[in-house]
């Protein structure tokens, strides 16, 4: 049997430091005030302005209209992240269900059509998408930010693979037990997919949380600002000789990082299960 040696630990510790280091520096720097950050650059020491900075970032209104507090942005990001994740899961599960369990004309063809959209990133279709949303009158709404991006080839593909690995007998047993297509989906397929759902949820939540370009296109009102946008906003104060609030930007970055980290930490065991094994 292989015995862990001290060098193994060293390598792992080194790796962890490389990953955690920048985050720690980011956090520590955010506790200094702006002038100090501007003068000395990144800091690796505790600055003592933690409460002050974070309080300001979270609760003090910023921006033009004064509607973009940190809490507001946090909430917007949350709505976007969760809206993305839930919407994409529902849509892609239904799509995969249709593709795997129903024999319809050109089913495989449609699957590949969905699949090839993977090759077309959002940026390619951003102008037409904008126009559609605009015509639907969904500019400056949460729906406008979320709905147009809900169709997910990745999600559909994952669920398709998962459903294909579910033994046919399960469907047959359910049919004999009198479960129709809808009942089979709700009573059996959804519950046994829960690890898969958790895995997709993480991926999609983080994806939605980190969206920058699309929300910026869709919204102009500051009520809809997300955290990721807020960071950018803080840095945009090169008016006259004013020093940008580096500390606040850094604090926002730390805040922006937290929810995805929490989601990953909470769901990680499910995440791994969902992508590697199946509960059948």
């Amino acid at each position: 049997m292989y015995r862990t040696r001290i060098t193994d630990h060293l390598i792992l510790i080194l790796g962890s430091l490389m990953m955690i280091g920048p985050v720690a520096v980011l956090f520590l720097t955010s506790t200094h005030d702006a002038v100090e950050v501007h003068r000395h650059g990144l800091m690796a020491s505790w600055g003592g302005h933690f409460l002050e900075t974070y309080n300001k970032v979270l609760f003090e209104p910023g921006g033009f209209t004064g509607q973009a507090t940190g809490m507001r942005m946090l909430m917007n990001s949350m709505i976007l992240g969760i809206g993305f994740a839930v919407g994409k899961i529902v849509l892609s599960m239904l799509a995969a269900y249709a593709i795997v369990y129903f024999r319809f004309r050109m089913g495989t063809f449609f699957f590949w059509v969905i699949f090839t959209t993977l090759l077309l990133p959002l940026e390619v279709r951003i102008v037409p998408s904008y126009e559609v949303v605009q015509k639907l009158g969904m500019i400056n709404t949460y729906q406008g930010m979320i709905v147009p991006l809900l169709a997910s080839a990745t999600g559909t593909f994952y669920f398709r693979q998962f459903f294909k690995s579910v033994p046919d007998e399960l469907l047959e047993a359910a049919r004999i037990d009198g479960a129709g297509p809808w009942k089979f989906f709700i009573d059996i397929l959804v519950p046994i997919s829960k690890t898969m759902i958790a895995a997709i949820f993480i991926i999609m939540f983080v994806y939605g949380w980190n969206q920058y370009l699309w929300p910026m296109m869709m919204t102009s009102e500051e009520v809809y600002f997300t955290l990721v946008r807020g960071i950018k906003q803080i840095m945009l104060v090169w008016v006259g000789s004013q020093i940008p609030d580096y500390n606040e930007a850094f604090a926002l970055a730390v805040l922006a990082m937290l929810p995805p980290v929490i989601v990953v930490v909470v769901f990680q065991s499910w995440f791994i299960k969902g992508l590697t094994e199946s509960d059948k």
Partner: peptide, 15 residues
């Protein structure tokens, strides 16, 4: 009005 027993049992794993 039939009932079937499958080779791999096909029990509902989450129930």
């Amino acid at each position: 009005d039939i009932a079937m027993v499958f080779q791999n049992y096909a029990l509902y794993p989450h129930m």
